[in-house]
Simulated assay, not measured.
Amino acid sequence: MNMNEMNLLQQFFYYFQENGSYVFAQFLRHFLISIYGVLFAAIVGIPIGIMISRRKKLADWVIRIANIIQTIPALAMVSILMFGFGLGVNVVIVTVFLYSLLPIIKNTYTGMIQVDRNALDVGKGMGMTAWQRLYMIELPLSVSVIMAGIRNALVVAIGITAIGTFVGAGGLGDIIVRGTNATDGAAIILAGALPTAVMSIFTDWFLGLIERRLDPASRTSK
């Protein structure tokens, strides 16, 4: 390790020592903005995914619209939404919500259409209603695929939330931008970028565990 790297590490730890509570507050704010956006997307996207699995003619159109939303650059999306929602947290939550729709809708649709038809026929034979088949057969068999969509959406959302600093939403992006504006801000950039990376890695790992536990194949193999 050369002197430059040693100095960078010293500055990094010094920044954390002096501003630890501020970094933690921005970390928590960043995470909550991401969670809220994905949660709202799940509340809207999962029912849409279920609906288009019943009406497959709509599926291509709905997924195509969600794909178009996904192609809009995040900074452009924030700029557009800013005119309707103003500055602050709300515009970032709506941005995360829109970007999270595609993986959640697509995975819900995929999970629902992959449910074994024989299992549904057995449910019909037992006299189950459509709602009972949904909650007792279809959702339990497709929940791991749906969770994979939520997992992907949340990891992407953590990265998107960093641009919230440009509209006054706070988050770890504030620290990164402060570092880019500082004369010798490499350590400050690292203090914002490293927690963002750790958040993404931990979230992906934790939701991956949940996804595997919810997988019907893993439950039946025990």
Results as ranks from 00 to 15, higher is better:
123 G>D: 03
200 S>A: 15
57 K>A: 14
71 T>S: 15
57 K>Q: 03
17 Q>D: 08
37 G>F: 03
179 G>Y: 00
173 G>T: 06
205 W>A: 11
85 F>N: 08
144 S>Y: 01
189 I>M: 15
49 G>Y: 01
157 A>Y: 07
209 L>K: 06
103 P>Q: 12
169 A>D: 11
100 S>I: 09
197 A>H: 04
163 I>S: 13
20 G>A: 04
31 F>H: 09
205 W>N: 08
151 R>L: 14
7 N>W: 06
153 A>F: 00
122 V>C: 06
94 V>L: 15
151 R>M: 10
99 Y>K: 07
166 F>C: 00
29 R>H: 10
10 Q>R: 14
82 M>Y: 09
84 G>Y: 06
137 I>H: 13
158 I>D: 10
60 D>N: 12
80 I>L: 15
138 E>A: 01
210 I>A: 14
127 G>Q: 11
112 M>H: 07
10 Q>S: 15
30 H>Q: 08
213 R>L: 06
134 L>D: 09
161 T>S: 15
50 I>K: 02
8 L>I: 03
75 L>P: 09
51 M>Q: 11
132 Q>H: 08
116 D>M: 10
42 A>P: 00
203 T>A: 14
87 L>F: 14
166 F>M: 10
151 R>Y: 05
74 A>Q: 10
30 H>D: 02
200 S>T: 06
38 V>Y: 03
70 Q>P: 02
60 D>V: 01
31 F>N: 12
73 P>K: 06
198 V>M: 02
41 A>G: 02
135 Y>V: 12
216 P>N: 11
102 L>A: 09
205 W>H: 04
154 L>H: 08
184 D>P: 01
173 G>S: 05
120 L>I: 15
35 I>C: 07
32 L>S: 10
59 A>R: 10
35 I>Q: 08
94 V>S: 13
212 R>C: 01
16 F>C: 07
168 G>M: 09
145 V>K: 07
132 Q>S: 10
147 M>A: 14
64 R>L: 13
200 S>F: 01
25 A>T: 04
168 G>W: 07
89 V>E: 13
169 A>T: 00
170 G>L: 03
157 A>N: 13
72 I>R: 14
87 L>C: 11
31 F>M: 14
177 V>E: 15
175 I>Y: 07
60 D>R: 04
99 Y>E: 12
121 D>E: 15
153 A>Q: 07
47 P>M: 09
25 A>E: 14
50 I>R: 04
101 L>C: 10
73 P>R: 11
177 V>W: 05
164 G>D: 13
86 G>T: 05
166 F>G: 01
41 A>W: 05
128 M>H: 11
156 V>E: 00
104 I>W: 05
176 I>V: 15
212 R>Q: 12
144 S>I: 02
197 A>E: 07
68 I>N: 14
50 I>M: 05
212 R>W: 00
49 G>W: 01
107 N>P: 04
166 F>Q: 02
44 V>E: 00
49 G>C: 02
110 T>R: 08
163 I>D: 00
81 L>W: 07
219 R>Q: 11
152 N>L: 12
194 L>N: 04
4 N>I: 11
61 W>V: 13
100 S>F: 05
86 G>Q: 09
191 A>E: 05
9 L>W: 10
86 G>Y: 08
214 L>R: 02
160 I>R: 03
126 M>E: 04
10 Q>A: 12
179 G>P: 05
180 T>W: 06
91 V>W: 11
21 S>T: 06
66 A>K: 02
178 R>T: 00
112 M>D: 10
215 D>E: 03
39 L>E: 02
218 S>G: 01
67 N>E: 11
